[in-house]
Amino acid sequence: MENLDVVYNTNNYLKYDFLDYLPFIEKGELDQVYRPNDDSYLMIEALNLEAENSIEQGALIVEIGSGSGILINHLVSFLDKKNKSSSLAIAIDINYDANILTQKYANHYHLSQVECVNTDVAEGLYNRLKGQADVVICNPPYVPTEDEEVASAYQKLYQKDKLLKEGKMEEMKKINCIEASYAGGEDGMVVTQNMIDTSLDLLAPNGSLYIFLIFENGVESIVKAIQQERPEFKCQVLLKQRKYNELQYVLKCSRLK
């Protein structure tokens, strides 16, 4: 992409205070959520840099699709350590097990600003959070798959939710919804597009969205569409790396004042 310079150079070695999730994880807990990988670590690196350079004190943070909670917990921790504590960090996930794990992770590291909500994207929060979020984080289900895979993933999620509401915990545990964390349909954008649109709506003036994307998602078209349809936002690529066969980006979209 000729017209999008990369803001930071990535360091492939870890240069931040890593909050290890292994000490408190129980057997099987990581099977139900997205296991942190290179995408997660690239995002953490970006969040560490932005916590230092850009994010202000008292930020209201929202993560859409928190999974294990690794991203939001790290950002809250970085800001605490830099004496720029956030005011509230809402970790949203449609998968109840993700909420439980995120909460466990936050409690273990005494991150008292973290609150977990079990919902689809921002349903139930949208009206009150619109225009209020200083930071939105998203590592979306970006993998290009058949659209059917997305449909079947969501079918399992709703089945799991139904069993949870009926109190059938043993049956609920047998349903594994891991696909919903990565299955993105055509171009990996079927769910991702909605997450981008909603995230931009939630941003406060001067607020920023940090989103992970890969080349196949059509990063250039995404940026172009935002520039054309929503010119009140400015886009920058913060980090870029090639991992195996993926060209990975952390995109920052900021709402101008």
Partner: peptide
């Protein structure tokens, strides 16, 4: 009715 379980509110709607 949106249940709260283990401190987590569930805002997911039925179809």
């Amino acid at each position: 009715r949106y249940p709260i379980k283990n401190g987590i509110p569930n805002m997911i709607l039925n179809d």
